[in-house]
């Protein structure tokens, strides 16, 4: 779909495992990795990156869904809508945004409000992340090949942050760290480098946004700033998978 192709790059960057991946899978349709693709064959697994931003995306996604036994959303855009769905379109209506960005476009211009895959088709499994983590990708493939659903942590980034014994940027420095609301899996990459989490992996399953907003409020951070920050990678509604 529409995205930055960062997740495909992560897949291709799994250098140590790439030969195993090619040996284990029969890759039929992967534009970035191969030139001879079959765009019609049935698929056991479809890994789909990007958000649905155009009518063409939507048609293509529907077609992929028909072809595939399992459809896996890959990356925060596919799982949550990502930056394209930032703020859930609350910043203004589509027509105005289009006009501001491209000038006069006409009715035929192919642009729809950004949607996550689950808003268009049934998604069987999610691999979140902006971009995804190599380890989770390989782990997902390995489990799927054995007919199992991969098990990823559902808890927030804070848990992994504490496991690494990082300093807490939120508590010690009062920074707006989205760790308590964001799903783990990145091993708290950013706080480990002294950078607050911006929530690029999307919300944790059980994120308590109400309480977190109150907490940031008590720290004197304007509610709108927080809400906007939290909606950078995901609107509030979850994919439910």
């Amino acid at each position: 779909m529409t995205g930055c192709a960062g997740d495909q790059l992560v897949m291709l960057n799994c250098e140590d495992q790439l030969l195993d991946v090619v040996a284990a899978l029969d890759i039929r349709d992967f534009l970035m990795a191969s030139s001879g693709n079959d765009e019609e064959c049935p698929l056991d697994v479809a890994l789909v990156e990007g958000a649905v931003l155009t009518r063409r995306d939507e048609e293509k996604l529907n077609r992929v869904r028909e072809r595939a036994k399992l459809l896996v959303a890959v990356g925060t855009c596919a799982v949550w809508g990502g930056v394209a769905a930032m703020d859930g379109g609350r910043d203004g209506d589509r027509a105005r945004l289009l006009a501001e960005t491209y000038g006069p476009t006409g009715a035929a211009y192919d642009s729809t409000p950004a949607r996550a895959l689950h808003e268009v088709v049934k998604v069987d499994f999610n691999i979140s992340g902006c971009p995804i983590e190599k380890e989770q990708f390989i782990s997902a493939l390995s489990h799927l090949l054995n007919g199992n659903a991969p098990l990823f942590p559902q808890y927030p980034v804070c848990t992994e942050c504490k496991m690494r014994e990082n300093n807490c940027l939120l508590i010690e420095k009062g920074e707006v760290c989205c760790g308590p609301l964001t799903v783990a899996g990145c091993n708290a990459r950013c706080p480990a480098l002294n950078i607050a989490c911006v929530g690029c992996r999307g919300p944790a399953d059980d994120a308590n946004t109400t309480s977190a907003l109150a907490m940031f409020g008590e720290k004197g951070i304007p509610r709108d700033d927080i809400v906007r920050k939290l909606r950078t990678f995901a609107p509030m509604e979850g994919p439910g998978v």
Binding site: V21, A23, A24, N148, A212
Partner: peptide, 25 residues
Amino acid sequence: LSCGSCSMVCPTCYCYEVADEVQLG
């Protein structure tokens, strides 16, 4: 927030999870 911090830092919290990883292919 169910952030888990209190359990991670607690000297007496000992709950753990056990899961199998699998090598590709």
